[in-house]
Structure formats: structure tokens, C-alpha cells
Nucleic acid binder design. Structure first.
Lengths: 138, 138
DNA sequence: GATCGCAGGTCTCAATTAGGGACCTTTCGA
DNA sequence: TCGAAAGGTCCCTAATTGAGACCTGCGATC
């Protein structure tokens, strides 16, 4: 497993944070950031987080909001997010029982950088499309 | 294809930007943001961007920095990033010819929100690990 | 009192995608 | 004459994903 290089994280407090990791002793072949980043940026987890952001949603509601996700992938994405502490799963004792997924505090905190990234993409999408068009013309 | 919901992007200028897209007329089943976001957050592209960030790198150099990437995936990741206008590919007429990959202006701009996300993960990794441990105990 | 529908899943199988590694091309040096 | 190096491509296998049938338990329907 490749480790994120120190220099990636920029100057100042970021460097300090990395120095701290190394002091704690971590295995460069098992980078702790990557295992989290991979799950956070996985195809469906980003979309799920965006859906759940404004208000808690239930399983079948998510299935309807994300028409091209399969039940299997939705289940797995929700489990991953729950396991990572970003989503809370609440079962309601109704007939039939309902299950609601909501952001945790940690999940809510994540939305700040995540929305910034989504917003950057939204703001720059024309540049990207232009580039793709030029590239595909060759 | 699922479209990112308007509410995802928060208030103010973000909403305005989405309103602008809709005015331009876009197909909700072919969301333009997702097709970009999927490529930017794909497993290897993030790592490649982080590697190339500080200084241009060559193909085999990247292969060495990312020990667990395959040649095939590196090639494909580099092509995607080039196509999206985030990376510039430069061939040097040496013997044998060398190829260098560098961030474009657009790519450099992307690093701001992308590094913020990486940094969030780095800062909060212990919380995530704690949550995983608790989840796995059940 | 059979059956339909719903909620929230699981399971199986087929299709897509990723990884491993051999192979290619050109040129230099031993 | 052989090997190495750079930057890939190609093929085959392994892993991941997606489509969709099925499950469970209960309440309402006919």
C-alpha cells in the first residue's frame, strides 16, 4: 500500500500533523489516510452523503433518489459510512419497521471539505468539458 | 444517472450556480458534475495528483512512488487526468524519450479543495478508526 | 383465510473492471 | 551480441459491480 507523501499535505500545521503520525509510529505500507479516503470518495458514498445531508433519509427513499444505484451497493455504502462513524442508522419500531440514516457530527464536519470539492467541480465543469472535447478531437 | 440535488450545494452562490445550470438546460439523467467528480475522486487519480503536486514526475517515477499501482492503471489514470485538463503530458526528445506529467493551472486550482479534504481525513482519522473498532466489535 | 404490498434487506449469477506480468520499440553501452 | 532503460500495450485471470429474484413479518384487501 502506498503512503501519502508528507509533502502532499502542504506547510505548517499539516507538516506538524504528519510528524506526529510518524512519532506515533505508523507503517508506510499501510497508510491510514488512504484507507479512509478511499471509502469517503468511493463512487456511491459521496452521493449518499450528499443525499442524507439536509435531512435523514430511509433506505427506499435513497433507492429512489439515486435511480442508478443497486440495492446491494446502497446497502454496502450505508454500512461503510456507518462503520466509519459518518452515518447513524436508526430503526423505528413501526409495521413494517423503518430504518433511517442520518449524518453524525463527524459526518456533518466532513461535509465542509466535501461540499467545497463538489462546488469546485460545479464551478469549473465547463473548463473540464472544453478540455475533454479538445482531447477527444485528436 | 442520478443528478446531484440542488440542496447539496448549500446556500447563496451555490444555489445561484445551480439555477444557472438549469437555465442552460441540462439533462437530469446525465449529471455533468458526477461524471467529473467520479474521475477526480477515483482511487488512483487522487494519489497521482498528490504525487505530481510538488513537482512534475515521469512515468516510471510515478510507478515507483505508488508501489501498488499497476502499469495499466497508471496509464489510464494519467490519460483521464490529461483528458480532463488537470495534467499536462510533455514528451522530451531524449534517448530513450522521457515523458513528464505536470499539473496544469486547472489542476493546481483543484488541489486547494482536494488537499483540504485529505487534511480533514488526516485530522480526523482517529475518530474514524475508533468508530470502526466499535462497529467491528458487534 | 389466501394473497397482496411494503420495508429493508440478502443471495446468485452475469458483466464489467482491475491487476499481473509478458512483450514491444528504439538507442546506447558493455 | 546482449542487456538495459523509458513508456507503454496486450492478454489472461481475479475481483468487484450490477440486475434482479427471493426472504421475512405484518397489516390490509377480497
Amino acid at each position: 500500500m502506498t503512503t501519502l507523501p508528507e509533502s502532499n499535505l502542504g506547510a505548517g500545521s499539516r507538516r506538524a500533523r504528519i510528524a506526529a503520525w510518524q512519532a506515533e509510529g505508523f507503517d508506510p505500507h499501510n497508510c491510514p489516510v488512504r484507507s479512509i479516503l478511499d471509502q469517503i470518495t468511493a463512487k456511491w458514498t459521496v452521493l449518499i452523503l450528499l443525499e442524507v445531508q439536509e435531512e435523514p433519509k430511509r433506505f427506499n427513499m435513497l433507492l429512489r433518489s439515486l435511480p442508478d444505484i443497486s440495492r446491494r451497493m446502497l446497502t454496502q455504502g450505508l454500512r461503510d459510512l456507518e462503520r466509519n462513524g459518518l452515518l447513524r442508522r436508526t430503526v423505528f419500531d413501526t409495521r413494517p419497521p423503518g430504518v433511517e440514516y442520518a449524518l453524525t457530527e463527524l459526518g456533518r464536519a466532513l461535509m465542509t471539505p466535501l461540499l467545497a470539492l463538489v462546488d469546485w467541480v460545479a464551478a469549473n465543469r465547463e473548463s473540464v468539458y472544453d478540455s475533454r472535447r479538445r482531447f477527444d478531437e485528436q
